[in-house]
Structure formats: structure tokens, C-alpha cells
Simulated assay, not measured.
Amino acid sequence: MTQGNDFDDASKPGPADEPRLFTALLRPHRALNRKGFLVLMACVSVISFGAGIAFLWMGAWPVFGFFGLDALAIYAAFRIYDRRARASEEITVTTSEIRVRRVSPRGDVVEWAFNPLWVQIDRVEHAEFGIEQLFLVSRGRRVSIARFLGAEEKASFLSALLEALQAAKRGPTYNPVM
């Protein structure tokens, strides 16, 4: 076998070297940034401490501890919320593949690759609420995508993805002017 017959030649262009027709990085919606979280926790702490002091003066000293537990529970809930917001999903379409890369809140990475010529997009729609779920389907595999998006955002995402898939099915274009 000669050097020219080697299929694993790194100098040949592969899917990573191809121009991207579509790329989307999806993340869960975050209502508060870091500064907003600190302001909220400061307000909750001041209110809880003030109300706890009022009950302490009235002689109901155990209530003071419950106000502290309330503030701690709100803090813990927002920390869990912040941890779950670390998840992401990246969808990339080139002329030779569709790649879905999902990162869990823990940092675990799962990837799927599909041929854009054979992939179909399946959707679950509700008459009143719009698109509820989107799936990429190919060769018996069904992968849920765009789970973080709302119904209107999924509709916009779907139209952009369909446009990119049509471009991928047309194949690469040759532009001699470049």
C-alpha cells in the first residue's frame, strides 16, 4: 500500500475542516447573572434578619432560626439552579455531517453524528402551544435537540436548521472568484 492510498491521512480535509453551514450553541435560560444573585441574596438576608430580630424581641426566639433556614434554602435552590445552567448543546451542520454535542451540568460530554442526506427532523407539536419537542432521526436513532428553547424559539431554530440541511443536501459550492 502506498502513501497515496492511506485513508487516515491527516492532510486530507475532513468534517472539522469543512465550512460550517449552521452552528448553534444552546444554553438554558438564566434569569439572574452573578451580580443579580448577590443583590437578591443580600435583600433576602436583610429581610430575614430584620423579621427574625422582630420575632426575637417579641419572645419567639425559635422563629429567628427558621428565617435563617429560609434564607439558606433560597441560597441552596439558586446554587442548584446555577449548576444546572452549566449544561449546553451545540449543533453543527456541514456538507458531510450534522454533529450534536451535549454537555451535562456535571461536564459529561455526549456526541452524535448524522449524515445530512439521511437525517429527518421530527417534531411534536401542540395545537395551542406550538412546537414542544424536536428530534433528529436517522437509521433508527432518535436524538432530542433544542430542549432548552421555548416554542417560538424552537420554530425559529427549526427554520434555520432546515435551511442549513437543504444547503448541505445541495452539496459544496465552487466559487472560483475567491
Rank of each mutant, 00 (worst) to 15 (best):
M58C: 11
L40F: 05
V137E: 06
D70E: 10
I47L: 14
V63N: 05
D108C: 04
I145Q: 07
L165N: 01
A87I: 10
A164Y: 02
V124Q: 11
A76L: 11
Y75A: 14
R34D: 13
H29E: 10
A160I: 05
S144M: 10
V143H: 12
F64S: 08
S138M: 10
V109A: 06
L165R: 03
R123E: 14
A168M: 03
V109L: 07
V44Q: 05
A113Q: 06
A60P: 01
S156E: 15
P176Y: 00
T92F: 00
V39Y: 14
L134R: 06
V103N: 03
A71I: 01
T23Q: 12
F135M: 07
R83T: 10
A167I: 01
S11D: 11
L26Y: 11
L162K: 09
D70A: 06
S45V: 10
L117M: 14
E153G: 00
D122H: 07
I80D: 08
F22K: 03
S11Y: 05
S88D: 12
K12W: 13
G50S: 13
P62L: 02
V110N: 15
A54M: 09
A168C: 04
V137F: 05
A155I: 05
T92P: 11
K12V: 14
L161E: 05
W61E: 00
K154L: 08
T173D: 15
G150Q: 12
P13A: 14
R86W: 09
C43G: 14
A16Q: 12
R170D: 08
Q133W: 14
K169Y: 01
V124S: 12
L158F: 15
G65Y: 12
H29M: 15
C43V: 14
W112K: 13
I98F: 09
G150R: 15
G65W: 12
I47F: 04
S159R: 07
G50P: 02
R147Y: 08
A51K: 05
I121T: 06
Q3L: 13
T94C: 02
P172H: 02
L117F: 02
A113T: 07
E163G: 06
E132M: 07
A113H: 13
R86S: 12
G50Q: 02
V124A: 14
L158A: 00
V124G: 11
L134G: 01
H29S: 14
S104L: 00
R142K: 11
S88R: 10
S159K: 08
L69E: 06
G130F: 02
I121N: 07
A60Q: 09
A113I: 12
A73L: 15
L162S: 12
A60N: 04
K154I: 04
R34S: 15
G52Q: 03
Q3H: 15
N115V: 04
V100M: 03
M58D: 14
R147E: 15
P105E: 04
S156N: 13
T94R: 01
P62W: 00
T94F: 03
E152R: 08
S156T: 10
N115A: 08
G59F: 08
A24I: 02
V63S: 03
E132Q: 14
R86K: 15
D9F: 07
V93K: 00
G14K: 10
V143A: 09
A113R: 10
H126V: 09
A168L: 02
A85M: 05
E153N: 00
P19M: 06
F78C: 08
E153T: 00
P172I: 01
A31T: 14
G4H: 11
P105W: 02
R86I: 09
